[in-house]
């Protein structure tokens, strides 16, 4: 059993932070706004077009640990999602099909993206982006919302003038997840 922690690596690769309002920063922010719009409007196949074909997409589990053991509070030995391009396309196809009952009728979701920071990386055309995400999810007659607050640590890439998501690590704020499944994308 391993307890590797990939989040440390993420911040090691972050170079200079781009100024808020600079051209690239605004482009990346626009990418996230568009992504939220596509997912909240159930445009899964259009969203899938924004994925790089070498994408790595992870949602590690969390554990409640003492502060001195906090490196073990995010664990990649087990994950809620562990995806590559093929599996994400599979999920998008399932949701676009006829029998994805977990999301048909669909949840009403809203993705609030904030606190965006964009960093240069050692690779031309690739940027590290950290953002906060709050998803509100409502199903059927529920008079409550499932709240899914998290931090996303992404690599976004400019491929032939098109922005693509090349890597995503989603750090959830709940140990015991309060929504019955992750049939939605984070």
């Amino acid at each position: 059993m391993t307890s590797e922690n990939a989040s440390v690596d993420f911040f090691e690769q972050c170079g200079d932070e781009l100024a808020i309002g600079s051209e690239i920063y605004n482009k990346v922010l626009g990418f996230y706004h568009k992504e939220a719009r596509l997912l909240d409007n159930l445009k899964f196949m259009e969203w899938a077009e924004t994925l790089a074909t070498d994408i790595q997409y992870n949602v590690p589990i969390r554990q409640t640990r003492l502060v001195k053991d906090s490196q073990s509070s995010v664990l990649y030995s087990m994950r809620h999602m562990y995806e590559d391009y093929r599996s994400l396309m599979g999920r998008a196809m399932r949701l676009s099909g006829n029998s994805a009952w977990a999301e048909d009728p669909a949840s009403r979701t809203r993705r609030f993206v904030s606190n965006l920071a964009v960093f240069a990386t050692g690779t031309e055309g690739e940027y590290a982006a950290v953002s906060y995400l709050l998803i509100t999810r409502n199903r059927f007659d529920d008079d409550h919302f499932d709240l899914i607050p998290c931090e996303r640590r992404d690599i976004v890439r400019l491929e032939d003038g098109v922005w693509k998501l090349a890597k995503r690590d989603v750090i959830l704020d709940q140990v015991l997840l309060g929504t019955p499944n992750l049939a939605i994308f984070l």
């Binding site: 994950r79 809620h80 999602m81 599996s87 977990a102 999301e103 499944n181 992750l182």
Partner: peptide
């Protein structure tokens, strides 16, 4: 591990229908 996470449990494409 990857396949099992993709099919079962939290985000499992099989079991997400059960938990709903």
């Amino acid at each position: 591990v990857m396949q099992t996470i993709q099919l079962f449990g939290t985000s499992g494409m099989v079991e997400q229908d059960d938990s709903d």
